[in-house]
């Protein structure tokens, strides 16, 4: 579990995150949603310690992140998998080497065992026959999947994904969502996903934090997000025409019964 207490983050005079209090549960897919620029990426990077918050505390389990020693942080990070919004693949390495990297760093497996594991995860993200290619030689969506494979290859305890399915087609998107959900419960991980994809929200929204202008405007899950009364949540959810139509039908049927 990860708990966040009164977190503030600003850049210069711009306050990006204001008084964030929330928690993310173990064994569940936790979603951070919100429109572009609402502070999702900044929030995730604060959780990872890549940005230093001005105020507030983040607890990994019972341990306060800011109170951890360098070695404790390193130990923690061996168990973290992260998918960056832009993939952040090492462009001097092939797909295979990228995915193998965390294993080479932290496991005692031999080359054959590592390769086997790499192929298993690449298979799970639906990526075959790209092992020897470099990141610059594959498509954006493929890069995203390699990044996901790299993040999960070492069975992390904490998995962070910054828009894992942006740039993916709807079908692959769903495959990735389901994969993340599966391994989250399989390994009892604490998974946090940034997204603004409503399909993901419905598919894997076991715990949802809605950010608006750097504040938590609503928290709930996929089954009660459609009943949220906050205008900002309603605007976000019903921004697509499809959902607008569904809402229309729902309200009509409510009106007739």
């Amino acid at each position: 579990m990860i708990r966040v207490n009164q977190l503030y983050k600003s850049f210069g005079s711009a306050t990006i995150l204001k008084d964030i209090n929330t928690s993310f549960e173990q064994g569940k897919t936790n979603l951070i949603i919100g429109s572009s620029g609402s502070g999702k990426t900044v929030f995730l990077k604060c959780l990872l310690g890549l940005f230093q918050p001005e105020q507030g505390e983040i607890y990994y389990g019972k341990q306060a992140f800011s109170a951890m020693t360098r070695n404790q942080k390193k130990d923690l990070r061996e168990h973290i998998g992260m998918v960056f919004q832009g993939g952040a693949l090492f462009d001097s390495m092939t797909v295979e080497e990228n995915v193998m990297f965390p294993l080479r760093m932290y496991s005692n497996q031999n080359q054959r065992e590592m390769l086997e594991r790499v192929n298993t995860v690449l298979d799970r993200v639906n990526l075959q026959n790209a092992n020897k290619k470099f990141p610059s030689e594959i498509s954006g969506g493929m890069q995203k999947r390699v990044a996901i494979a790299r993040a999960i290859v070492n069975n992390p305890r904490y998995l962070f994904c910054d828009e894992p399915n942006s740039g993916l087609d709807p079908k692959t998107s769903m495959v990735i969502d389901n994969l993340i959900k599966e391994i989250t419960s399989e390994y009892n991980m604490t998974t946090i996903i940034n997204t603004h994809d409503m399909n993901s929200v419905m598919e894997i929204g076991q715990n949802i934090v809605f950010l608006k202008d750097g504040q938590v405007a609503w928290q709930g899950n996929a089954s009660n997000i459609f009943d949220a009364s906050e205008q900002s949540v309603i605007d976000f959810v019903y921004s697509s025409n499809l959902f607008k139509k569904i809402r229309g039908i729902q309200q009509q049927s409510k009106g007739t019964t």
Binding site: K45, L50, R77, E78, I80, F84, G86, L89, F90, D91
Partner: peptide
Amino acid sequence: SMRVTEQIDALEVMG
């Protein structure tokens, strides 16, 4: 270029 494409952050996150 590793800095701007967050590859350095990726290394740091991995400890």
